[in-house]
Structure formats: C-alpha cells, structure tokens
C-alpha cells in the first residue's frame, strides 16, 4: 500500500463524539466550580481557624466564669504528666495529617 493512500485512509479515521458532548463537559465544569466554592468554604485552614477561635473563646469563658485570676496558679494543670500528653497529641496530629493528605491525593487522582 502506498504511503499517500495510507495517509488518505487514516485521515478519514476521525471519530465523532456524541451530540451533547460539549454540553456534558460544560455541565461538568459548572458542577466542579460549585464544588470548589463549597470546598473553599469548608477547607482545612478555615475549619482549623474556626475551631481554634471557638476553643479559645470557650476556655476564656470557662476561666472567666470560674473567676481564676492567674492561669498558671490553677494547680490541677501542674499534676498532668507532660510526656504522655505530648506523645498523644503528636500521634493524633500525625494521624489526621496523614488522613488529610490521603484524601487530597484521592481527590486529585479522581
């Protein structure tokens, strides 16, 4: 078979997409943009900031209500063992960082 004939034949091999292909793509884009807006609202930094602010407010309110003048003078805090608590907090933090990274990776591959 001659090269030109082969070229002519393969140049005819274009396969057409379905009629509503473009509409499907545009709808997909709209859906993803909506999801993106939601995910920005519920993103990790936003949740972290909101939770930190809430915890601070609750702790502040608690100490105000207990009418404690100096935080360090509150005796029970000194009796808590620091090393196990530190390890526990670090362990939990690593677990959740790993969880978030895996979710992010899965989202990317989808």
């Amino acid at each position: 078979m001659k090269e030109e004939k082969l070229k002519e034949m393969i140049s005819k091999s274009t396969i057409e997409t379905s009629d509503d292909f473009i509409n499907k793509v545009m709808k997909g884009i709209e859906l993803q943009e909506e999801r993106k807006k939601q995910s920005i609202f519920w993103s990790f930094p936003v949740i972290l900031f909101v939770c930190s602010a809430l915890i601070l407010a609750i702790v502040g309110l608690l100490f105000y209500m207990l009418n404690i003048q100096n935080f360090m003078e509150y005796a029970t805090f000194n009796s808590i063992p620091k090393t196990p608590v530190f390890l526990l907090v670090i362990g939990v933090a690593f677990y959740y960082i790993n969880h978030i990274m895996r979710l992010h990776h899965n989202e990317k591959t989808i």
């Binding site: 274009t14 473009i22 793509v25």
Partner: peptide, 28 residues
C-alpha cells in the same frame, strides 16, 4: 479538537464509551 482527541483516546483505550468519558474529564 473533540473529534481528533476522541480518535486518539480510542487508539489507546479501544472502548468508545470509556474513551468519551475519559475525554470529558480531560476537557474539564
């Protein structure tokens, strides 16, 4: 570019339905 892209996708995937789905994701 949709038709030529689909032709290329079918060259690899062979299944036209799967290829069109993949192509939608590609354009997004």
């Amino acid at each position: 570019y949709k038709d030529v892209s689909l032709s290329l996708a079918i060259s690899i995937i062979k299944d036209p339905i799967v290829a069109e789905d993949v192509l939608q994701d590609v354009f997004i």
